[in-house]
């Protein structure tokens, strides 16, 4: 048997296993971490034109914990993440199937306004992308468009406490009027986190938030994520297994558009069930 056929066999096996698992989790109101479930995805598929990028993903995401998605490049982690706050709507030719529910409410319900959804599910991107505005205006952007502040004092408070929560306030408090693009990479990423927090989201999605940062900035962000966990449901995509192990409580392993294995982070890293997961963790795939 060739390697390729091997992989395909494994994949099929993984998929069968997945369905069993999802049946199991569906019966439990809370998952292995013993936490209430915030987001549930069932049989989520994504097509980019003719190309299928996700093949039926089903997963539960626990409240006030960090869930990490790992897997080799191109396996569909970002694609799945972008399904959760419907960012795929902005991509021409992207078609999403299956259901995703936030607190039991269907995210793809035509009656649900995507504006409202994205106010509840914030997002932080791979590369820090502050707007070419001042630090203050960057953070104030979300509250302004959503009309969350009744007056300037409210807005000031939102901006300051968001910057605080993002651990950036002390560093920038004297230069709130300066351009956000003038900050260092790590500061920019924290600014983007503050920008997301300022809208008061319940869930925060982070797509490789540290991949453009140096180790020190990465450590700061990881610490921050650990703090935010107390108040927010966080989903993070990462290429670093160490990072997943450090910051997340739950881990899901994706491969070639399939969810191969998911579970408590410790279990996944110490005792993976699936051979592909083993291979990936040992550095043999990807």
């Amino acid at each position: 048997m060739t390697n390729l056929e091997n992989a395909q066999m494994d994949m099929l096996a993984g998929k069968v296993k997945m369905t069993q698992q999802s049946v199991n989790t569906a019966m439990n109101p809370s998952d292995a971490l013993d936490r209430p479930i915030r987001l549930t995805a069932r049989d989520v598929t994504v097509h980019y034109g003719a190309k299928q990028a996700l093949h039926g993903i089903s997963i539960d995401i626990p409240d006030r914990a960090v869930t990490s998605f790992i897997g080799p490049s191109g396996c569909g982690k970002s694609t799945f993440l972008r399904c959760i706050n419907r960012m795929n709507d902005t991509i021409e030719g992207a078609k999403v199937g299956g259901t995703i529910k936030l607190d039991g409410e269907d995210v793809y319900d035509p009656n649900l306004d995507v504006v409202e959804l994205r106010a509840r599910i914030g997002m932080v991107f791979q590369k820090p992308n502050p707007f070419p505005k001042s630090i203050y205006e960057n953070v104030a952007y979300g509250p302004r468009i959503h009309g969350l502040a009744r007056n300037k004092a409210d807005l000031d408070e939102i901006v300051i406490s968001s910057l605080r929560k993002a651990g950036l306030f002390e560093e920038v408090k004297d230069r709130l009027g300066e351009a956000g693009t003038g900050l260092s990479g790590g500061q920019q990423q924290r600014l983007c986190i503050a920008r997301a927090i300022a809208v008061g989201p319940e869930v925060i999605l982070m797509d490789e938030p540290c991949s453009a940062l140096d180790p020190i900035a990465t450590a700061i962000i990881e610490e921050l994520i650990d703090e935010l966990r107390e108040n927010y449901t966080i989903v993070i995509v990462t290429h670093s297994m160490q990072q997943a192990a450090r910051v997340s409580q739950k881990t899901a392993f994706f491969h070639l558009g399939n969810l191969i294995e998911e579970g408590v982070t410790e279990d996944i890293f110490t005792n993976p069930v699936n051979k592909q997961t083993q291979d990936y963790i040992m550095g043999r795939i990807g």
Binding site: T90, G122, F125, V199
Partner: peptide, 11 residues
């Protein structure tokens, strides 16, 4: 990325 950042905030 600039566009995505804004959409991601619900604009």
């Amino acid at each position: 990325a600039m566009r995505d950042g804004s959409y991601g905030l619900g604009a």
